[in-house]
């Protein structure tokens, strides 16, 4: 009830990538890929810890990753990892005040300098690199 009165959009609003352009999509992808990689890290620690239960347990666990489903997860992990790294570098540089443009007299129609073409290019490059890495990974994992 308190939240309805406060009228906050909540996680649903935060996670909505539409309405505000490419930068908001990049924000959403960064969050999703971060959470995905965190889940993978936990899963990976669990997976490798099975070696403590002996060779059979380890081989059973390893066979799971060698299914089409397991390969698909790994392809997604490759994509998330590459995008998160590329976009993360952009964010680290920008959040130090670099590459966000210079303050100046705004002129109509107002275009925010911080949402400039260099930022957009970096986002697209991150997406493209992630796609290429996923294609390469899929080729290796699903290939002969």
């Amino acid at each position: 009830m308190a939240e309805r009165v406060a009228n906050r959009e909540g996680i649903k609003g935060m996670a909505n990538p539409t309405r505000y352009g490419l930068e908001r999509v990049a924000y959403w992808l960064q969050r999703i890929s971060g959470l995905g990689l965190l889940a993978y890290l936990i899963g990976h620690i669990y997976e490798t810890s099975t070696i403590l239960n002996g060779k059979i347990a380890w081989n059973n666990m390893l066979s799971l990753t060698e299914t089409p489903g397991g390969h698909l997860v790994l392809v997604l992990v490759i994509g998330m990892c590459v995008f998160h790294t590329g976009n993360g570098i952009r964010l680290m540089i920008s959040e130090g005040g670099k590459g966000v443009g210079k303050p100046g007299q705004p002129e109509y129609p107002y275009r925010a300098s911080s949402l400039n073409s260099k930022q957009r290019l970096c986002i697209w490059v991150s997406i493209a690199l992630a796609a290429l890495a996923m294609m390469y990974g899929a080729g290796v994992l699903f290939g002969d």
């Binding site: 930068e23 964010l91 966000v100 303050p103 275009r111 949402l115």
Partner: peptide, 19 residues
């Protein structure tokens, strides 16, 4: 987290994300 939505909607060209 520099989502830039604030600057995207500003009607006066203030660009809070840059600030």
């Amino acid at each position: 987290h520099f989502a830039g939505s604030c600057s995207n909607v500003c009607p006066k060209g203030v660009d809070p994300a840059m600030a």
